[in-house]
Design a protein around this nucleic acid. Structure first.
Lengths: 256, 256
DNA sequence: CGCGATTTGTGCACGTCTTCACAAGCGCCT
DNA sequence: AGGCGCTTGTGAAGACGTGCACAAATCGCG
């Protein structure tokens, strides 16, 4: 299926160090490492061991080492990793050396919050445009940016190279917005609307659904409650627990 | 194996049907199925096939069937699944039959948006309290709720049984808030602050970091760009691709 | 009443991710 | 210089998740 044989020109002689193709699970953790590394750098650390960094990032140290080894990392045995160098490496791999322009569509409740979120700017992104379909919202100024109509998207895209589109509209409008984003060449979409988007091959979509996260937590609440209530029903219900769960981004019971 | 004797109505005392312990990956998808099912129900469908439902939820149909089989599901061969029944089943498993009370701490930019997000109410949750550490914010009314001081948490917890705490504070305050939540008996936390929380065993933490999602997308942008630019540099860069990526919640190139 | 069309439920094989355990490498101290 | 302690990088094993392919089950119809 995902046979992305990019047919592009058979070029040669490149200066780009040929991105290693990382496991997706590793990619998902790199930003976390990066954040921890910035914290360490701010507090004056020059080097850090895998043990120290993994603790700061909330993962297993072996996992961290394997992750870093995938990007051909530069650690020193007996010493650890050079914090500044590692930051540079990860930022390069994640493509954060260039500040990417983000278009945010949907300036409702959530869109407002996202527009004002300074975590974007501080981590390599720049909100290049705010867009909305509601004419009454067009013209409003948020955080120094003026809301434009979503139909202006082609104009915005012409003004600057949009890397990522963020959809913060109601579910009903999301698919249409996605189509418009794709039409102007956006190939990465972050979708906050609770719906499935269909996009052409080559376009990446990531979805964030706040209610889903709560529902997952609700499940665990329910499970915990049913366990404490009648621990003898299944017989194995308790003994089977320890190996328990270790979801992608569920941190559980980190030692004091 | 899966003899999940799902008691049709065992009438036995316990009444709690002994939750099957589901794979975490399955749990993470159930809310998505639930949403699709509600859509189907709203548009008048009484039954749905695994093919139809999986399309609506954006997953593989075999995966869907296996997921549903884990909860001892009630499909009918040759027909499909009863939409209403399946909704009931999933809502039960997820513990959504009781409306869970959520405490939201941090009423800044993001907290405001979350407080006004109607997706919570519509999917089984009720924001029971808004809290903030900033005295100047205490007393403010948002969406019919008055912001209280975070130190009132014990009082709030005494008033009603809090199931889940949502942290939407700056990173610096998150750990302290988490401690306070745990102290009043909250065992599930949804953390929007960009930091790792340490909590005692038995407490579940899920993390949502908007910037991390963007960084993951940025990686794929970078990769795509480097591929089209020079597909032949490493030699192995292309051949190693096919198995590609299939992250937890990355939907990629869904066919039209 | 039996047959065919349809769809579920699942055995199986494969790929990915995690974790352990340890050899190899590095710096420091004597 | 040599040895010792510390830390990285990785081989291997196991757990987990995925997807195919098919048998079993059900419905509708002649």
């Amino acid at each position: 299926m995902s046979q992305h044989r990019h047919p592009g020109a058979p070029g040669r002689a490149g200066a780009v160090p040929a991105l290693p193709d990382l496991p997706e699970a590793t990619v998902a953790r790199l930003p976390e490492y990066l954040r921890a590394l910035h914290n360490l750098a701010d507090s004056g650390h020059e080097t850090v061991s895998s043990e120290g960094l993994s603790a700061a990032a909330g993962v297993n140290s072996a996992k961290l080492r394997k992750d870093l080894s995938h990007l051909g990392s530069y650690g020193t045995r007996g010493v650890g990793y050079d914090v500044a160098l590692l930051i540079e490496q990860i930022e390069y791999v994640l493509g954060l050396t260039q500040r990417r322009a983000v278009a945010l569509v949907g300036v409702g409740n959530l869109g407002h919050a996202l527009a004002g979120y300074d975590g974007f700017a501080s981590r390599g992104f720049r909100i290049a445009a705010l867009l909305d379909a509601d004419p009454s919202r067009v013209g409003e100024e948020i955080n120094g940016l003026v809301v434009r109509h979503v139909d202006d998207l082609p104009t915005v895209a012409a003004e600057e190279s949009l890397a990522i589109g963020v959809i913060a509209t109601p579910a009903a409008a999301a698919q249409q917005v996605a189509d418009q984003l794709v039409a102007v060449g956006v190939t990465s979409i972050l979708n906050f609307a609770p719906c499935v988007l269909s996009v052409p091959e080559g376009v990446d979509v990531r979805k964030v659904d706040l209610a889903i996260e709560l529902q997952i937590l609700s499940f665990h609440e329910h499970r915990k409650a049913s366990l404490t209530a009648l621990p003898a029903t299944g017989g194995s219900a308790l003994t089977a627990l320890p190996g328990g769960f270790a979801a992608t981004d569920t941190q559980e019971a980190i030692g004091t």
